[in-house]
Design a protein around this nucleic acid. Structure first.
Length: 295
DNA sequence: TCATGTCAAGTCTGC
DNA sequence: GCAGACTTGACATGA
């Protein structure tokens, strides 16, 4: 490992603890939510949050200074306010404990968020993103890119430039705390957004760019890895969080889609002499990171 | 307990 | 035209 990389982390699931039923992904299908409602959502959310505390503490005991929280902690969060959950006092108390731990927490809302969207799509996006920001508020986390809420720009609607302009306009509809936390990530598909594409958004909004190494290799635009890394690095006002994964097609299964992540990690990460925190995205989660570091 | 079919949201890709 | 994928499989049902 490049020792200038400051903290390492992984996304959403801890396989070691999951084997003991410790998970933050309890949820339910629509039918169950319509039958059992917010009371059951609250029950699951409390369990999810309590297990998040266990995962965070496991991370600290095992040298992980960074962790991506799952977006599935609050089932059907679009349908209620967090403060209305019957177990809210217990949930909040647990969240405050989590927020007080010396670990860098981030989150990555799903692909349904289309900040450049319109109408109901945009309304739903704002609600979802604000709920993520509220989660960090409840943890007592100061609004900044240190605890990033990272999304992709989303679709292009057939016109990247016009879509980025709309994204920048809609960014102004968000709360101060959310705007202080939001970051954007480069995409893996050729039709979507490269680091260079995102620079124009940064120049208009100040939104930092999360550099995803693997996505860059699949969709480099005209920049080398080092150029794209530095371009993204220079958009940050705190130590950046970048994403790393290896190719499944290259390392594990020639038949795999080119965008598929490998289960494990195979390469060291070049951080070009800069201090960067890395989230490793791989199916084998913390086990893959431990294996990489100890090899 | 276990196998299996099913599952909110938006957009794009590949079959 | 539709399933699959996306940062992460988990839930519900019936045997």
């Amino acid at each position: 490992m490049d020792l200038t990389t400051h903290a390492t982390g992984y996304a959403c699931i801890n396989l070691t603890l999951q084997a003991n039923k410790v998970t933050t992904n309890r949820g339910m299908i629509k039918k169950t939510f319509s039958e059992k409602g917010i009371a059951y959502a609250s029950e699951l959310a409390l369990k999810n949050v309590q297990d998040l505390l266990k995962i965070v503490d496991w991370n600290l005991e095992n040298g992980f200074g960074l962790f991506r929280i799952s977006s599935d902690i609050f089932p059907w969060a679009s349908e209620y306010r967090l403060v209305d959950l019957p177990d809210f006092p217990d949930i909040w108390a647990t969240l405050k404990k989590i927020g007080s731990r010396p670990i860098r927490l981030t989150i990555h809302p799903g692909p349904f968020n289309q900040l450049a969207g319109q109408g109901k799509t945009l309304d739903n996006t704002i609600k979802d993103l604000e709920t993520h920001s509220e989660l960090f508020d409840l943890m007592g986390l100061k609004p900044s890119h240190w605890n990033k809420i990272n999304i992709h720009v989303g679709g292009t609607y057939g016109d990247k430039a016009a879509t980025l302009t709309r994204f920048a306009q809609n960014f102004n509809l968000l709360s101060d705390n959310l705007r202080a936390r939001l970051t954007v990530e480069n995409d893996d598909r050729l039709s979507l957004y490269t680091v260079t594409d995102l620079v124009s958004l940064y120049e208009r909004t100040g939104i930092p760019i999360v550099f995803d190494y693997f996505h860059h290799h699949l969709n480099p635009g005209y920049q080398t890895e080092k150029e794209a890394f530095m371009t993204a690095y220079n958009t940050w006002d705190v130590r950046p969080v970048f994403h790393y994964s290896d190719s499944r097609q290259l390392h594990e299964d020639p038949q795999a889609r080119r965008e598929a992540h490998a289960d494990w990690l195979y390469s060291t990460v070049n951080t070009y002499g800069k201090e960067v925190d890395i989230i490793f995205e791989c199916k084998m989660k913390e086990l893959a990171v431990q294996k990489l570091i100890h090899q």
